[in-house]
Write a protein that binds this DNA or RNA. Structure first.
Lengths: 344, 344
DNA sequence: GTGAAAGCGCTAACAC
DNA sequence: GTGTTAGCGCTTTCAC
């Protein structure tokens, strides 16, 4: 069995507080006793009980992360970035996967609160954030990534400029002589859907292209919805023709391509394509897919530093700086074969 | 601020223990007081402090998972399987990424112990498991996945039959008329390396093919090592010719293909290829890669059920059943274009 | 059926 | 420089 401070204190004939002092080496301890204690700790292989510590200190040294899907590279790369920074500060991470379910997300928010995480990083899929009230009222920092919350902004956030992301994508297609450009995008209830659609509209308007609302399809980020949306577009092609498509997520991109292939259209010759967040770890995806990319690692590091600052503030004043930070990072466009038919 | 049992007790004029009773609804409580208490709990939006609970109960309801790389689909799919089962039992998961570093792994084992996880699921990259002694002596179940520990087997495990995996892969190549088959495999210090190499040898021996030791390359599971190993094989090709290659991990497979392409060899015409754990989420990898596949979701669920059983045992006897379980699951072979040149 | 009280393992005043 | 003690929030035994 594991020994506690009390056990060791009894054994060594010193008080618990003395041992606690050398374990945490804060106050000065007589070098002689310190040595005795250190040997005792080693002998008993003392491992502090973090649970007891957390209870006493009212802080667990843990931050919670909730994402919709840990098998998406986009999220795992962010998590790694976060981990790189927080690990150095001895802050542990508790990771939860909401499986794109608002209900599960809410449950996790409660669960994590009960576990008294020191801060929360949230890639929300929900419109309702009442579960965050308890974080607010207990002064626990919450930082949004990927998606912003609906109404009030009592939280920090780190996202990319989704509007600009779409401008990059659509302008690129326009430069490649496309004017009839369709889009498959997430629900406008989420900022990632709303802002990306916005950018699409703006790009077209800037080039005086009249927007055909039939070329706009709303998906749910999953592969099958990309497939279904693409099918719908293709079936309407007679009345609402298009030569290019812009798709707002990785899995929907793969689904859409599946549909395109089923109808024997060629990419990019018949349909030029720009995706979003496409990670080709294999380097073998054919055709290479032009895609909007986000700086995942940097997002992760930025979020982590924000967390650290918030935690530092809290230790100081006891009240957080009420000015919330909304950090907006730059997306980029990775150009591959799928969009390039300038030579036709 | 958050209210505690004490706060609410004072407010309602009942004792702390009564409230605790209705919160956990174990003992019978007078329906009238129960009602009063329930209303009070709602009014104050009571959220139990899991830290205090854990300290008192000497159990956190949390299991730790340590994997070498959360961006590998192999691991995230396992984690999802685990989560599906444990989530239903209200057991939370703490996830740690050791980044393929034995040092980091050891640190996490200590950290997780200090956080008093109730059980540990470990995909080890280390040869030294001294850090697990403390788990052993405190009766905390440890379950290995993917790799087995070096010497003693005081732990449960859930792995696939790696030997058989190689038989599937190599026999398939032999059936496609290959006899000079190279291999890139993980370090023989790990069971995933050792057993996969073993199976490779056995398959060749069973077909009376003399093994050319020069065709055996040891990598470290990362992409670049696949690339380097493949390059080495190609450069020795004059003296040690081969027409097919079997590669023991996903990222090494991609690295190896990169090298093959650099030398302008064709797959499968010049070099037929079988990979391991290749996940093609896009469905667009060209050529399609024949690969050994593991039942990740099922592995996850199996591990989770083992955890649950161990925890149940512990609650009962206080001593765990000393018979350790080593569950071995079946790999399968997913056949695609990369290995198929039977028609040549 | 309910309350009082001990105690999980630790930290941090406060005394000396 | 070190020990004593209270208490973090909770569960659970033991009285009544």
């Amino acid at each position: 069995m594991n020994s506690t401070l009390k056990d060791i204190a009894r054994e060594l004939g010193v008080s618990v507080s003395t041992i606690s002092r050398v374990v945490n080496n804060k106050t000065y301890v007589n070098p002689k006793t310190r040595k005795i204690v250190l040997e005792g700790l080693k002998k008993f292989n003392y491992m502090p009980n973090q649970v007891a510590r957390s209870l006493k200190k009212q802080s667990t040294g843990t931050v919670g992360i909730v994402v919709p899907d840990i098998s998406e590279n986009f999220f795992t790369e962010i998590i790694k970035g976060i981990d790189e920074v927080l690990g150095k500060k001895d802050i542990s991470i508790v990771l939860a996967d909401s499986s794109e379910s608002a209900q599960k997300e809410t449950n996790y928010l409660k669960l994590l609160y009960q576990n008294r995480i020191d801060a929360l990083i949230l890639a929300t899929v929900s419109k309702n954030h009442d579960a965050l009230d308890i974080y607010n009222s207990n002064n626990i920092p919450v930082i949004f990534i990927d998606n912003m919350p609906d109404n009030d902004h009592n939280f920090d956030s780190v996202i990319i400029d989704n509007n600009k992301a779409s401008l990059l994508a659509v302008n690129h297609l326009i430069e490649n002589n496309h004017r009839d450009i369709a889009i498959i995008v997430g629900s406008p209830d989420e900022t990632t859907g709303y802002e990306r659609l916005n950018g699409y509209r703006r790009a077209l308007e800037q080039h005086n292209i009249i927007i055909d609302e039939h070329l706009i399809q709303y998906g749910n980020y999953k592969e099958d919805s990309g497939y279904q949306c693409m099918k719908a577009l293709i079936q309407n092609r007679k009345d609402h023709p298009f030569t290019a498509i812009y798709i707002g997520s990785e899995m929907m991109t793969y689904g859409a391509i599946k549909a395109i292939k089923e109808y024997d259209f060629r990419i990019p010759e018949d349909i030029a394509l720009v995706g979003f967040d496409v990670h080709d770890k294999s380097g073998l995806i054919t055709p290479g897919i032009t895609s909007v990319r986000q700086p995942e690692n940097y997002i992760g590091k930025t979020v982590a530093n924000l967390v650290i600052n918030r935690l530092k503030e809290k230790k100081g004043n006891s009240h957080m700086n009420p000015v919330y930070q909304h950090i907006v990072l730059e997306p980029s466009l990775e150009i591959r074969k799928s969009s390039n038919n300038r030579d036709l």
